[in-house]
Design a protein around this nucleic acid. Structure first.
Lengths: 322, 322
DNA sequence: CTGAAAGCGCTTACAG
DNA sequence: CTGAAAGCGCTTACAG
């Protein structure tokens, strides 16, 4: 019994011949250890909680399936799995998190859809419930708990650089409302790189869209082009807004990628499904998931527990040089 | 101890005053029963396995987040949760399912992304592993195991009826390749209802798209309109193809919803994000999830374990009468 | 209706 | 390196 347990959990303790003998029997009998008994004894369930976001109508999360798949894969490579649950947004949802942890359905949580001033992080930290966040809360003070995020400013700077390198000299920006730390971060990358390259980067070149919809992207693009017809490129803060830009260009008889270059953000499946295909800033989902699981499952992580990853510009026809 | 257990699991066995006394103490002590101990004893983990689909590049599953959210909510209302895992597609993935069940990480599975001739159903049934399928395998013979599906033929017939009622008389159909049972089913709904209404429904009016992309939808729409310029409506088998149809109409200077009406399938978030918004056939996700969980968690379901649900046509500008 | 007892299937010190 | 024993925290017949 306990030799079998050792063979499974600490094979180095056994003599090679014993190990082989036991392993053979395990296979012969098709023995599979009961995970509940193990969890009861070790008080580790090897399950990680993830709250499935519920989106307000019309909101699209085009890369959630990619993220979930990456998260699952990473969890599995560490012998764990993802447990899905729902909870009210914000601090109202915290009792759900607490209950799942108290009843030992999960060891800890991966937070995503992190909002600016998200209250969950401080709450979980105070309760000493293990978690790691995908995304920052954008507080002045140090963020509670470990996090992984993508360098949105860097990504947008890379997009600007790419547009500059392919001959663009007047680059607009489609943003979200000012209350979002994420939006300000991405916008700052555009502003900074344009400044470094000697390109115009005044506020009139950055339009705030009211919602993340194709209509808003189109409307804002029209606003941008009406105010400044010399614009020859647009960096959009999301693929959806970029799709709106493409539509407005088409409506005006302008050719995307020729007359005006367009880039999006997220490299969602839609990017390669439109024509011309959309140049977009890809978040490295596999890497993000790997870091999240690593931080959450390593008792004493060697590296920092605040990790900023670089996105990757995927160039397609909407910004092709010719 | 066991009175507490009774209070939690069989409160009717206790005298009201005792129950109240115990309940009060439970709350005072903030006691939360350990789920692993319970599962070990009852050998039910109250976890349902769901395999996260991994999509070939460019493939979009625009309603997966809706489905997952609905599934989670239904599972939770029966005291259960969803455990996510990954597995190779087809029969190669079955050892993963078997292992999860053997080690008692899950009680059973919800299958989705069901393919025509999907081998998983027969395999699980033979292994006596509990499961329920969202979607049919489209075999001649009786399908192994319980399933829930949406009446695609009925949905397309409803779309045709709606178009007829709003004055359309020549309705094209954008389909997928012939090898898909799902596609044939939806197509048959268009064919049947057109026939009943005395509208043309010959094969030339149904174009097979080679892929589920906007480009293919646009190309096929062009093909359709070139061959028969009198077409005044198009029923698309997916929202993505419908988006392609909208694009092609725009390219030709035709106004969607006025010159040519267009309907999609799935009522994905994209449907309400384009302009004109897309009329689409909505799969009742909450109901689907409810039935799936009901069948899987009821030892002896009262109703049939093969349930066909009716989709709902959501009418928007792309098919508005005026 | 309530209390003492066994046991679910593991893991882990502890002897041999 | 291997074997007998305790115990993780519940549930569930079984007595009182």
């Amino acid at each position: 019994m306990q030799t079998v347990s050792n063979a499974l959990n600490a094979p180095h303790r056994l003599r090679p011949d014993t190990l082989q003998r036991v392993t053979r029997s395990i296979e012969l009998l098709n023995y599979r250890p009961n995970r509940n008994a193990r969890s009861l004894r070790t008080s580790a369930v090897e399950l990680i909680g993830y709250c499935v976001p519920s989106w307000p109508h019309g909101q699209v999360h085009l890369v959630m399936d990619q993220f979930l798949h990456a998260l699952c894969t990473s969890a599995e490579s560490s012998g764990r799995h993802i447990l899905l649950f729902t909870a009210p947004v914000g601090v109202e949802g915290m009792p759900v998190y607490e209950d799942l942890h108290a009843r030992r359905l999960v060891d800890g949580f991966v937070l995503s859809q992190t909002e600016t001033h998200d209250p969950r992080h401080a709450w979980l930290k105070e309760q000493q419930i293990p978690f790691v966040s995908f995304g920052r809360v954008w507080e002045e003070s140090t963020q509670p708990g470990p996090w992984v995020d993508v360098d949105g400013a860097g990504g947008c700077a890379t997009a600007v650089q790419h547009l500059y390198d392919t001959g663009r000299r007047r680059i607009g920006f489609l943003s979200w409302p000012q209350t979002s730390g994420l939006a300000e971060n991405r916008l700052s990358g555009w502003r900074a790189r344009c400044g470094e390259l000697g390109l115009p980067n005044h506020d009139e070149l950055a339009v705030r869209c009211r919602a993340d919809t194709i209509d808003e992207g189109a409307r804002s693009t029209a606003e941008l082009l009406d105010a400044d017809p010399a614009i020859d490129a647009i960096v959009a803060i999301s693929d959806i807004l970029a799709l709106g830009a493409l539509r407005e260009l088409g409506r005006r008889g302008l050719v995307a990628g020729v007359d005006v270059a367009v880039t999006g953000f997220d490299d969602s499946p839609l990017a390669s499904v439109v024509s011309p295909a959309l140049t977009s800033i890809r978040q490295p989902m596999d890497e993000i998931a790997g870091e999240l699981i690593d931080i959450l499952t390593t008792p004493d992580p060697k590296g920092p527990t605040e990790r900023l990853l670089q996105p990757e510009l995927v160039v397609r026809g909407s910004s092709a040089p010719g």
